[in-house]
Amino acid sequence: MRRVPWSGLAVLAAFVIVWEAWARTRGELAAFFPPASRVLATLWQLLASGELAEHTLATLRRFAQGYALAAVLSVGAGLCLGLWRPLYNLLEPLIELLRPMPSPATIPIAILFLGIGDEMKVAVTVYACSWPILLNTIDGVRSVDRVLFATAATFRLTSWARFWKVVLPAASPQIVTGLRVSLAIALILVVTSEMVVSNDGLGYYVLESQRTFQMPQMYAAVVALGIIGYVLNRLFLALDSWAMAWHKGLTRREDL
């Protein structure tokens, strides 16, 4: 049974109250800074009318496609690069050059090659999400203890069995770390690409509302994005603590 984080909730409530009071007492801000109550009421209306659902689904669809594709490709590539040193040496300079580049900079290039549709948005999301997953997977595979490899050898595991039964599970905590970092990155890139060019999605909706002076709608969509990010992270953590229970137990033990 987890404790209810009362003090944290109190700070959150205080934040909403300050927002509400500030927006109400400063009349000159009314045009672009509606009070919290109005934003939440608008959010409720948009949800009830289904107006937001369409945009939310478009954003979530792109997010899911991009994230899933990045996970599969990068875990696969990371395992190969981690296990096969010559391949890593060959690609390391390229990786180190591309990795620090801010990912949104790829959007204009992606538009040139893939147009302005979903392919472009999914592609930039895959690109941006791949780095943390790739590098964590490589590192996870590299840090598998040599005693485990020797154990696999003395039990005469085939290289396939060694991969499935030893390398992959031993590297999994770090792979999961990479997946978690990329979760937030995926949402950022989907929304950014929707802001650059789109006719649906929450990123498009936020920018469009701002341009047409529908401030409560804009804030409502921003709040909705915040909630989506929070829920996705929570879901991930729940999955993580179930699948990686052994690792949590192990590390808690080592902290003692």
């Binding site: 203890d145 005693v147 020797a150 154990t151 039990f155 595991l157 069995a161 599970p169 052994w246 690792h247």
Partner: peptide, 27 residues
């Protein structure tokens, strides 16, 4: 079979005791 001094590294932390002992029987 070679048995190591570093039991904590040689055992699979993600497997229960039963699954660890079963490890060598699986092939």
């Amino acid at each position: 079979i070679l048995l190591f001094q570093e039991y904590n590294k040689s055992l699979m932390a993600w497997r229960s005791v039963l699954a660890n002992v079963r490890f060598g029987l699986e092939n």
